[in-house]
Write a protein that binds this DNA or RNA. Sequence first.
DNA 1: TCAGTATATAACTATACGCTTATATGATCA
DNA 2: TGATCATATAAGCGTATAGTTATATACTGA
Lengths: 114, 114
Amino acid sequence: MSLNMDELDEVSQILKLLGDKTRLTMMKLLEKRECCVCELVEIFKMSQPSVSQHLRKLKDAGLVKENRKGQWIFYSVNPNSVQHELIQNLIAFVPSQDHQLEELEKKGLRISCD
Amino acid sequence: MSLNMDELDEVSQILKLLGDKTRLTMMKLLEKRECCVCELVEIFKMSQPSVSQHLRKLKDAGLVKENRKGQWIFYSVNPNSVQHELIQNLIAFVPSQDHQLEELEKKGLRISCD
DNA sequence: TCAGTATATAACTATACGCTTATATGATCA
DNA sequence: TGATCATATAAGCGTATAGTTATATACTGA
């Protein structure tokens, strides 16, 4: 998120970013647990570059953070973003996406580094 | 707002609509008090068709309602919209636009039908 | 160091969006 | 009824956006 933004710009930029169904769902997922790109590709049935580009927008705005573990990069909601309270508020209105994560597990496609 | 929309569609559509700075500001204003198109034209320094088109989008989604008074049509936030709680939540994060209304008064451009 | 896997970036395309100008519709009032 | 004011709609334009395929970068492990 740019430094010289007033609050109105901040809020509208966040809403614009999350006005996309894919990114909104991503945030709901990444609030629950961190995911790597390949997991999100599987969940969204979407090309890997497309997923990467969405993540980059979210990251550029400070909404998610990345955490490399070996060859994977795990993304999760950044709890230190500006307007984090707004974001949490929004996400609370998004239907749970837990079934997506459960299906990943079922297919044995969940990446774990523990 | 279309009838066969799931909750995720509803939420993302609202965020997309309010991801525009003009419409977001409009909602903040129209929550405070109803305004007619010509007042909004003055406030936003924008062409009348542009303002009308923004209002139509908000109205098509059920976010605002209209109220004709003589030759004017006054718009205000619709308290019976789907996801109204979400909308109120969002608007609470938008900086106050009261100064806009005060300036209208000062310029003698406020339309009153009482 | 090389092959394989994960992710990012570049380039392109089709569509959506916001704005403008021009015009149509609708209400008021003499 | 005709002039005027308020609002809506139509058409067109420039730009932004989300997706694709192709390619580059980066890490892992033999």
